[in-house]
Design a protein around this nucleic acid. Structure first.
Lengths: 165, 165
DNA sequence: TAATCTGTTCAATTTTAATTGAACACAATG
DNA sequence: CATTGTGTTCAATTAAAATTGAACAGATTA
């Protein structure tokens, strides 16, 4: 069967919701297409496949595939198996707790960890050097303090966000 | 007196700290130059002026001016008055509480507000339309719930981060 | 096995964001 | 008032990121 690349028309409602999630994506350093895809899935009445989304948003297959991969990577969407169809169908995950913790684990945690590594390296440099002023020692100590606090924030945010569902 | 654009050499320690803040800047959606500037000021033994920073980092005057403007905008740096010198001198603000709340107010809050506006528009659209499924009503309700939680997070994060100083 | 369907990958392209550098504004100085 | 010092602005440029589209891989079907 030939795929129909029919003209895409988003309802005013869909457009607004998509625009909202595009904004969020931007805030989270994610590509625009990720926000668009999630916005459509969030308002979808039923599971959608890659081609449904590609056509609806009028974006390329590559972008769609990449965007869905990112959304899957932190659990913002789920794959739904539709019997008798070879395609993968997707629905938006509706638990903010799951999305937020997925995002935290996949997108934030690695940064915090590489930050810790770098901070260790900084400590080493500080100890190697002989003539380091007390002021610099203080600064690096402060850096460690900040790092410690940053590490404390994430779990609390997740607990706060994930209250009920 | 002629300005000397001497060759910039960052110590290994400075380089590492700058690299750390460049990473943070990237995480926060700020230009690289902002991370570089803050990194240098954070480790500086004494207040520095625009030209000091420009030369040390080997970046343009425009970039330096822009970067300092951004850092000032959320209170990550302070202007220090040096008597007898016409230049502006800067030091890194050392209170994480102040920096975080400045950042929250200047960079995050506006997004949350425009999000609220858009959500109101979405509600209006939902009410205008006659044949909207119950499912869509639920989705928009969930959106409002998410927004509400997002608004609750910020103050808690600030309180948590700003513990002592 | 060939033909088709589905999704992924990645080099080339397009788009977006950051940086540069020269022109400018303003203040202070001679 | 002309000159110098300081910092800002913004159009042009450069650099970085996202998107495209065609080639590809694997899975299914005939």
């Amino acid at each position: 069967m030939k795929t129909e690349d029919s003209v895409s028309v988003l309802s005013a409602l869909e457009s607004e919701v998509v625009a909202l999630f595009v904004r969020v994506a931007d805030l989270l350093n994610l590509p625009r297409s990720v926000g668009e895809l999630y916005g459509i899935l969030f308002m979808a009445e039923s599971p959608m496949c890659l081609d449904d989304l590609r056509i609806k948003l009028n974006i390329s297959k590559g972008s769609t595939s990449q965007g869905l991969k990112i959304l899957r990577s932190f659990g913002a969407i789920r794959v739904v198996y539709v019997p008798g169809d070879r395609k993968d169908f997707y629905v938006a995950e509706s638990s903010l707790r799951k999305i937020a913790s997925g995002f935290a684990n996949e997108q934030i945690q690695p940064h915090l960890e590489s930050g810790s590594d770098r901070l260790e390296r900084i400590q080493d440099l500080l100890n190697e050097e002989a003539d380091v002023s007390g002021m610099l020692h203080e600064r690096v100590e402060r850096l460690e303090n900040w790092q410690k606090r940053a590490n404390q924030v994430l779990p609390v945010v997740l607990k706060l966000i994930g209250g009920k569902g």
